[in-house]
Amino acid sequence: MDLDIVRTFVVAADTGRFQEAAVELAVTQQAVSKRIAALERNLGVRLFTRTARGAELTIDGQAFLPHARELLRVAERAVTSVRPGRRPLRVDVIASRGAASGLMRGFHRAYPEIALDVVWLFDIETAIAAIRSGEIDASFRAVAAPGRPLPEDIESVRVLDEPLQLLTGPAHALADARSVPLARLAGHRIWMPGIVPGTEWAAYYDDLVDEFGLTIEATGPNFGSDALLDTIADTPALATFMGRHTRLVWPADHGLRRIPVTDPTPVYPHSLLWHRDSPHPALATLRAHLAATAAGPGAAGTWTPGWVNPRD
Rank of each mutant, 00 (worst) to 15 (best):
D2W: 14
D2G: 15
D4E: 14
V6F: 07
F9P: 07
V10I: 13
A12L: 13
D14Y: 02
Q19N: 06
A22G: 13
A22D: 14
V27A: 11
T28A: 05
A31T: 12
A31G: 01
S33C: 00
N42K: 15
L47Y: 10
L47F: 09
R53W: 15
G54L: 09
G54V: 08
E56G: 03
E56K: 13
E56A: 13
T58H: 12
I59E: 15
E70V: 12
R77F: 09
L89S: 05
L89W: 08
L89R: 06
R90N: 06
V91H: 02
A99M: 07
A99K: 04
A100Q: 02
A100L: 05
G102Y: 03
M104H: 09
H108R: 15
Y111V: 13
Y111Q: 13
P112R: 00
A115R: 02
L116F: 11
W120Y: 05
D123Y: 05
E125N: 10
I128W: 05
D137R: 06
D137Q: 08
A138C: 04
F140T: 00
A142F: 01
A145F: 00
P149V: 03
E152K: 03
D153N: 12
D153E: 15
E155Y: 13
V157N: 06
V157R: 14
E162K: 02
T168K: 13
R178Y: 12
R184V: 09
A186F: 01
G187S: 03
H188E: 13
R189M: 06
V196R: 07
V196N: 00
W201N: 12
D210G: 08
E211Q: 07
G213H: 06
I216E: 05
I216A: 02
T219P: 00
L229S: 04
D234V: 01
P236A: 13
L238M: 08
L238C: 04
H245W: 08
V249L: 14
P251L: 07
A252N: 11
H254T: 02
H254Y: 11
R257N: 12
I259D: 10
V261N: 05
T262S: 05
D263I: 01
P269W: 08
S271F: 07
L272G: 05
R276S: 03
S278C: 14
A292S: 03
A292D: 06
A294P: 08
G296L: 08
G296D: 11
W303V: 06
T304W: 00
R311L: 11
R311E: 10
D312I: 07
